[in-house]
């Protein structure tokens, strides 16, 4: 019973982290810097849904709006900040510090507009609760799982079998060579920001459905996503998925032994262990 519940919780947490880490890795692959604004973009998506449902939009339309809001915010950060920095050939640390600035700015915009307090994104008790092999799983949690599977599937097909995917992979391998081959790398990176940020938005929305929204939610999502991608091997999509599920399991089984308020600390303990003993991650190349 208890064991089944822990497995279910781990899988759902892993699915949520997968969504955030896929976008994070996609952007990292193309730009080679750690985008700290990614979590705040996820929060923007969740607040997009919060705003739309408050305005009386239906749920499906609100979700589409929220995902688009996240995607557009992501593109705006690229156009206004990262693209000019790329043109100046700034150091990676400059990108990281600028992205921390964006993170702080977006979080403050959310706090000013919607208040710093916590809001449920769905009325409590929405949706059915299923009993799966002794574990109780809510409808929202199944949506999280389904979306993660669908998103990774679509992304995989997109990257593996389309011209667009080939371009992205070329860009991730070597931006200079891609540019020489006539690819408009700057615009492509904009498209990648749009895709990655939409994935972040979806993660933010689903996390909001599961546990509610708060302007500070972005930091936690970002750190979980970042831990997943480092554990999996930063920039590797498959590694990111493995890392996300490993993190989900370690966290949820960890709180079997230690009180649940240490969940965050467990995640970063795992990160530290990986950083010391295997800094390239599970799938990373040396």
């Amino acid at each position: 019973m208890f064991f089944a519940q822990l497995v279910a919780n781990s899988v759902i947490a892993g699915a949520l982290y997968t969504l955030i880490t896929l976008g994070f890795n996609l952007i990292y692959g193309a730009t080679k810097f750690t985008n700290m604004a990614h979590g705040a973009v996820a929060a923007m998506g969740a607040y997009g849904v919060f705003f739309a449902t408050r305005e009386g939009w239906g749920l499906p339309l609100s979700i589409v709006a929220g995902v688009l809001v996240a995607g557009i915010v992501g593109v705006i950060t690229d156009r206004l900040v990262f693209s000019p920095l790329r043109k100046k050939k700034a150091r990676a640390s400059v990108f990281v510090i600028a992205s921390l600035g964006i993170f702080a700015l977006l979080q403050s915009i959310l706090s000013i507009t919607f208040g710093a307090q916590f809001w449920p994104l769905l009325p409590p008790g929405t949706g059915r609760v299923f009993d799966i092999a002794g574990a109780s799983v809510t409808e929202v949690q199944l949506w999280i799982l389904g979306s993660a599977v669908a998103a990774s599937g679509i992304l995989f097909i997109l990257l593996k079998f389309t011209i667009f995917g080939k371009v992205i992979r070329a860009l991730s391998d070597d931006e200079e060579v891609a540019k020489m081959l006539g690819i408009n790398t700057d615009r492509m990176i904009g498209v990648i920001f749009f895709l990655g940020s939409m994935l972040a938005g979806l993660a933010g929305i689903l996390s909001g459905f599961d546990t509610g929204v708060q302007p500070t939610m972005g930091l936690f999502l970002l750190l979980e996503g970042a831990v997943s991608s480092i554990v999996g091997g930063i920039g590797s999509l498959v590694g990111g998925i493995l890392g996300a599920f490993l993190l989900g399991f370690v966290e949820n089984f960890g709180i079997w032994f230690i009180a649940s308020q240490w969940k965050g600390a467990i995640a970063f303990g795992l990160l530290t262990i990986f950083l010391i003993f295997r800094p390239r991650g599970i799938m990373g190349k040396d």
Partner: peptide, 28 residues
């Protein structure tokens, strides 16, 4: 000693995590 063996972004992320751990320890 632990973190500064890591290059650029890893070091930065590890430090953010460290901040999170310290606050979590202070709370718990």
């Amino acid at each position: 000693w632990i973190f500064s063996r890591l290059g650029g972004d890893y070091y930065m992320l590890a430090s953010v995590s460290w901040n999170y751990i310290v606050v979590s320890v202070l709370i718990n």
